[in-house]
Design a protein around this nucleic acid. Structure first.
Lengths: 132, 132
DNA sequence: TATTACGTTTACGTTAACGTAAAGATATTA
DNA sequence: TAATATCTTTACGTTAACGTAAACGTAATA
């Protein structure tokens, strides 16, 4: 009765639930906590992960796929959760955001360049096969 | 008289020329050779890099920026330089190409998702600043 | 001729991101 | 009650991608 469409209604997850869902080892998750990327609560000694931990984990793994280090991912994730409403801080946040946006757009361009090149090779390859 | 628009007309480059152009250390370049990513010739003991080495280096660094390992980059680079015209090999090459294309397109999607998220945060941030 | 610049090889060091193993707590099941 | 499953902490091991240092060769320059 705790699960609904594979989604925990209590919004609490065990380490094994998360590791299975994202196909990573518990060790990896503990490591992310150690590095200050996740903040599970405790029930006794065992970790209890919240929905926000789950989102964070998703963002970390997404960042990894496109070549972000854990530190870079933490930077980005922290932008999603501004802790203050002070103008000065907001402005700093905005700067950070714009910086990361540039970074992302740059990487997108690199990917597009590689895609163009690869498609060229592909078509050369295809026509070479046609000629046989 | 050897240079023309910062481009070596002899198509031969020293290790320091390349390391300066791409802002990496000579050690890095030697490491890439050691790992089978570059194949400089020798004049005596000193390495002589060709135009194709230079292109390869550029591709390696581009790959790094979007999170490819050196092994992955080598895979991709080798696709640019098919060594055979055998049909069977060409078909294999084509499969590899398509696989890498999927990988690239996937990463592009991840980036687009992150960009969307980041823009959302940005506009929240901006309107919060407006309200002050 | 001595220094400087640039190259070489060899080899050990470093950091990030985990893997792996040991030793134990706790809770459910046979 | 014994076994099994799942969790914990502690700690050493591993791989990729270089950094860094030593010790040396060679060629141009002061």
């Amino acid at each position: 009765m705790r699960n609904f469409k594979n989604l925990n209604m209590t919004e609490a997850y065990s380490i094994s639930e998360l590791s299975q869902e994202f196909d990573i080892t518990p060790r990896t998750i503990r490591f992310y906590e150690e590095k200050g990327l996740l903040f599970p609560g405790r029930k006794g000694r065992t970790r209890v992960f919240s929905a926000s931990d789950r989102v964070r984990l998703k963002l970390i793994l997404r960042g990894k796929k496109i070549g972000f280090s854990l530190d870079e991912s933490r930077d980005i994730i922290e932008m999603y959760e501004p802790e203050t409403d002070n103008t000065r801080q907001l402005e700093n946040l905005l700067l950070k955001i714009q910086e990361k946006r540039l970074l992302l757009e740059q990487r997108k361009k690199e990917i597009n360049t590689m895609l163009k090149d690869i498609k060229k090779t592909e078509s050369i390859c295809l026509s070479a096969l046609d000629d046989q």
